[in-house]
């Protein structure tokens, strides 16, 4: 049994010893962390653990006991606002990578001061998007952060 805070609510789950967080979440219908490469390379399974992005496909669920786990549902307003900027810049097509990116942008906004293009690129590395070329995403994130000031 593992207990953690999921998007602001305390939850307990029965788990197998070697189970990964993505499997626990998806089994309980939290499906915004997507299964992509399943080898920590693509970023679509990203969640926040105590506000830091991590790939849930390689994180043992047993390790998040007593921690705070955030999926995109936990930052719904922030993500909705960001996605409007993505739309304006034509920054996405299929949207599969967006929940992971939104969580990383959220963590970046919490952690970094003086965010410039390099900071944004630094956080986008590790999020594979095969629709865009990252330029429009960088522009959208920059405009979004400007808009929040």
């Amino acid at each position: 049994m593992v207990t953690f805070e999921l998007n602001g609510q305390i939850k307990s789950f029965h788990i197998d010893q070697g189970e990964f967080l993505i499997d626990t979440l998806r089994r309980h219908h939290v499906v915004s962390p997507r299964r992509g490469c399943d080898t920590t390379s693509c970023g679509v399974c990203t969640v926040l653990i105590d506000d830091q992005p991590m790939p849930s496909c390689a994180l043992l669920t047993a390790r998040v006991n007593d921690k705070k786990v955030t999926t995109v549902e936990g930052i719904a307003d922030f993500a909705a606002e960001l996605s409007a900027y993505f739309g304006k810049e034509g920054a996405d097509q299929c949207g599969f990578c967006n929940p992971g990116i939104a969580l990383s942008v959220y963590a970046m906004a919490q952690t970094e001061e003086n965010i410039d293009d390099d900071t944004i690129r630094h956080y986008l590395v590790g999020h594979l998007c095969r629709c865009s070329g990252y330029v429009s995403q960088t522009k959208a994130i920059k405009a979004f952060l400007e808009g929040r000031k």
Binding site: T40, T46, P53, M54, P55, A107, H122, Y123, V125, H127
Partner: peptide
């Protein structure tokens, strides 16, 4: 180290 994969993996 900063050139290894992305922030998420380096946090883990």
């Amino acid at each position: 180290i900063a050139q290894i994969m992305g922030v998420g993996l380096r946090n883990l």
